[in-house]
Design a protein around this nucleic acid. Structure first.
Lengths: 169, 169
DNA sequence: GCATAAATCATACTTTGGTATCAGTGAAAA
DNA sequence: TTTTCACTGATACCAAAGTATGATTTATGC
């Protein structure tokens, strides 16, 4: 299972490699064609810069796994004196992509993520089973695979890891 | 399984690195064979490509994965006179200001808070007992009273409520 | 001194969680 | 078409969690 995943990802990398090769050859060709005109030099360099910057961004998005997850922290003090409240907003834009990346990294399926999130809310397996209209053994099976994938011994540990990975709020 | 994943990821990076290296050498070879002139140009273009690819990767990493460790900062407001000569908490040194207020609301004792925080890290009762040098029944008793005070049925639910109350990080 | 509460421990019991093994189905990919 | 995989489910068993009850010790407030 894990072996297949590695092979699959390497296939992707090979694809990246060939894309890069094609791109470089294209640039070679462009160079040969436009090198006669000196004024095209800036455009040429600029194009390369833009193209490879994009390539870098794309590569990074594809190959990296986000490490730290921001946690929304809201704190209130209210003891008959003044109230101080500080809210740290996480960046709202990349929330989706981060979760997607974390999801892929963890290897969890959609259903498993769903169960994990319900576990994190403090629900019992029985309650989760009823909420999702499946049987208790099914939830137990999901839970077991979740723990295995997250390398957790208990559900509480899975919650901790999931929070740090940004899989749950 | 997590180990395999790490290996897989490193494999990707290594693979990509070698692919890039191979491509550059290929280009060099082609250049030497077909275009004996203008070596500087090739190197220049290649450098730009590499540099901007790196720039793209760096940009992507910076944009999508801001390492924002959310830190709970709270200016403490004194509570009339109930703050007696308080002893220093042994375990949760890091966030002194977090608990005090929420602590009084919840009615948890110092020891109970300590146990609760360890529960939230994913530890089992047995592990907590060993860490605190007490017996397993003691931790169970603490846990039960904690759940009662937090009005939680399970430890996972207690974790959820504790997080929302700011009792745990 | 005495009541109170926190912290400790024990024993017995019930419930839930977690593992192991097996298996059927349906959809998607090779 | 065959294979793979996600999802589902069942049974059985063991481990851990949680409850109930009772008890001892220590420190603190009245």
């Amino acid at each position: 299972m894990a072996l297949n995943k590695i092979l699959g990802k390497n296939k992707q990398v090979i694809f990246y490699g060939f894309s890069l090769a094609a791109l470089l050859f294209l640039l070679k060709w462009l160079e040969l064609k436009f090198l006669i005109i000196d004024h095209a030099m800036e455009i040429y360099i600029g194009s390369i810069a833009v193209i490879f910057t994009s390539l870098g961004i794309w590569l990074a998005l594809k190959l990296t796994n986000p490490k730290v997850k921001t946690v929304v922290v809201e704190k209130e003090v209210f003891i008959d004196k003044l109230v101080e409240k500080e809210v740290f907003l996480p960046a709202p834009i990349q929330d989706f992509s981060i979760n997607q990346n974390a999801l892929q990294q963890s290897g969890l399926s959609k259903r498993e993520l769903e169960v994990l999130q319900l576990i994190a809310t403090g629900m019992s397996n029985q309650e989760i089973a009823e909420k999702l209209f499946v049987s208790l053994p099914t939830i137990k099976t999901h839970a077991s695979t979740i723990f295995e994938k997250l390398d957790a011994k208990r559900r509480t540990q899975a919650i901790e890891k999931a929070k740090k990975m940004g899989l749950v709020a």
